[in-house]
């Protein structure tokens, strides 16, 4: 039964991938291209490309697309997406309940004190990973970067506005 297999495969992927979308892609490729052969390698490359350039988390986009591609139905998308989401919901809920119970413990408090600079480092690493020649091609992209930085930092422009404006400006400059 393909729907159950989709659910179970993405449940496992969701449960064993840490660090979000990009980390998950290798696991997805192994399962859906190599083991189950639901999509071909070149279809997978297209799916990754689409997932990266459409709104929404890659870790949701890719399963939704593969669920549709492999079955030709929305039901396939539903089970794949539900599968990848369920472990997140369960494990995060357990962490929430645990932390709520022990939030006054000195061990938890000490841990969070050291976690603050660590998380700031992890956010910074996400920006570094995206600083590729692909994303910074030509001087125009540095102007986009600097303008967005100034608008957000100095003038507090909302991120949503900045995404829309930079997309429109991209069409004007490169289109």
């Amino acid at each position: 039964m393909i729907f159950f297999e989709l659910f179970w495969t993405f449940f496992k992927i969701g449960l064993f991938s840490f660090g979000g979308g990009y980390a998950m892609l290798a696991l997805i490729q192994n399962e859906v291209v190599r083991i189950h052969q639901w999509v071909t390698n070149s279809q997978f490359a297209d799916i990754v490309a689409v997932s990266q350039v459409t709104p929404g988390p890659i870790a949701i986009n890719a399963p939704t697309y593969i669920g549709y591609q492999s079955t030709g139905t929305i039901t396939g998308s539903f089970w794949a997406t539900f599968g990848v989401t369920l472990p997140s919901v369960l494990v995060t809920t357990i962490l929430f309940v645990f932390l709520n119970r022990f939030k006054d413990s000195p061990y938890i408090k000490n841990a969070f004190k050291a976690l603050k600079p660590t998380v700031i480092g992890l956010i910074l690493s996400a920006a570094l990973v995206l600083m590729t020649p692909d994303n910074f091609s030509g001087w125009q992209s540095f102007v986009f970067f600097a303008a967005a930085f100034a608008a957000c930092y100095k003038f507090n422009v909302s991120p949503i506005t900045l995404v829309i404006v930079s997309g429109a400006a991209g069409i004007l400059v490169y289109g």
Binding site: V53, I120, I123, L124, A126, A127, L130, M131, N135, F136, S137, S141, F142, F144, F145, A146, A147, A148, F149, C152, Y153, P159, L162, V163, S166, G167, A168, A169, G170, I171, V173, Y174, G175
Partner: peptide
């Protein structure tokens, strides 16, 4: 579509750096 995303990508990097 490609042109819009060429504009959005560098802006997104800036948007991640500001909260840092």
């Amino acid at each position: 579509f490609i042109a819009a995303f060429k504009g959005i990508k560098p802006a997104v990097i800036a948007l991640i750096l500001v909260p840092v």
